[in-house]
Each structure stands twice: as C-alpha cells, then as structure tokens.
Write a protein that binds this DNA or RNA. Structure first.
Length: 198
DNA sequence: CCATTAACTGGTC
DNA sequence: GACCAGTTAATGG
C-alpha cells in the first residue's frame, strides 16, 4: 500500500526515524498505527522456540506494514525491526480509519492491496511447503517480484542477503548459497556480482 | 588499513 | 538438508 504523503499528514501522519536494528513494534503489542516507509527497510520477523529467526517479509520504500491489524482487534503476530536507518510516516489507527471513510478511493485500493497480499501469500505457502529448496527460493522470489513494477526477464533485483533469504525460507544459509548456484545453472536466475536477478 | 559482515567450501551426521 | 568449522571476498569507517 502506498498512500499520498500529504494525505497522510492531513490526518495526523508524522515522520519517525529509526536507527538500524530498532524495533518499530514487537510481537504481542497492541496495534496503534498505520506505518508507511519513506526510506529504508523494515523486516517482520518471529523467533521459534529454539531462537531461530523466521522472517515473514521485508518491506522497503513506499510500502506499508502492520495494516492488516488495523481492521481486527488482535495483537501483532510479528516484530517489526528496521534493517537500516529508516524513515516512516505513521498515523494513528483511528485517524487512519477516518481517512478511509473520507477517501473511498483509498479504501478501495486498500481492499485491492490486502487481497493481493492474500493471493500471493497463498502461493507463497504452497511453495514453502515444498521440500525442494529450488521451489522455496522461486516461490519467495515470485512473491517479492509481485511487489515489483518491471516485467522483463531476469531484471528484478533481489535486494536480500543470502542469510535473509535463508531466514525467509526457513533454510540454512549454506543451502541457499548452493541452491542459488543451481538456479544460475538452470538459468532461473542471473547474478551480477553477488546480486541476484530474477 | 583493519575490523566486521557476507559469501563460499568442505565435511559429518 | 542441517549443522559445524574454516576460508575468502566485500564493505565500510
């Protein structure tokens, strides 16, 4: 979701800066705001019982997070942590809902946005259930690419470290590294230095 | 530069 | 594949 900055401000939106590795919110906290990233990156993660990190998603510029929680009365299922110096605009929950009432167009877009997330999430879950690491990586990249505008072959830059890919897919770094090489041979992806293009 | 972080390799289970 | 150990390459102050 990407809402016009001025509109957000007119409904009480304020800019907040986060240093790298700072929590924007933590698991089980109450949802109070809509967040939209102006610059930087934020990851949504959880930790399993063994302390192993699982990343649900990594969001960048012009992307929102925490918004599904604005419509239901539940606690955050994940942490939100900035990966680098990050600037977000946040607007209080009630103001956000008020904004939707006064801007039906935004409300409609919000529906489309949430629907698309659901759609790609289901594809994601499907691929993640696969034992084959190639399918897991490909599923992840399809998902990431769904946020992306361009449409040419092998031109979508995957701005993730191998470790982050591992934490997103539940695989080990070493497995990701080896799988990436297989996929390069498959022509599924392309490398520019270390950066992956899908 | 040096120190830190990320990418890679090989081997065991 | 996970997990561990050790090396190499890249990054950044």
């Amino acid at each position: 979701m990407n809402i016009d900055e001025n509109t957000l401000r007119s409904f009480g939106g304020e800019t907040i800066r986060y240093k790298p590795k700072e929590f924007v919110f933590k698991e089980n906290e109450h949802s109070l705001y809509y967040f939209q990233i102006t610059s930087g990156k934020v990851k949504l993660n959880t930790y399993n019982e063994n302390g192993k990190e699982f990343i649900q998603n990594i969001l960048g510029k012009n992307q929102s997070f925490g918004d599904p929680l604005l419509f239901i009365d539940r606690l955050y299922p994940t942490n939100a942590v900035s990966l680098e110096t990050t600037e977000v605009i946040r607007i209080p929950k009630n103001n956000f809902l008020e904004m939707l009432e006064k801007h039906p167009d935004i409300s409609l877009e919000m529906n489309a946005c949430l629907s698309q997330r659901l759609y790609y999430n289901s594809l994601m879950v499907r691929n993640m259930a696969s034992q084959d690491p190639i399918h897991r990586l490909q599923g992840l990249m399809d998902y990431l690419k769904s946020y992306y505008d361009g449409d040419c072959q092998h031109c979508f830059p995957v701005e993730l470290t191998r470790q982050q890919i591992a934490d997103l897919t539940g695989l080990r770094v070493e497995t990701v590294i080896r799988t990436v090489k297989k996929m390069v041979n498959n022509q599924t992806i392309r490398l520019d230095g270390r950066r992956i293009f899908y």
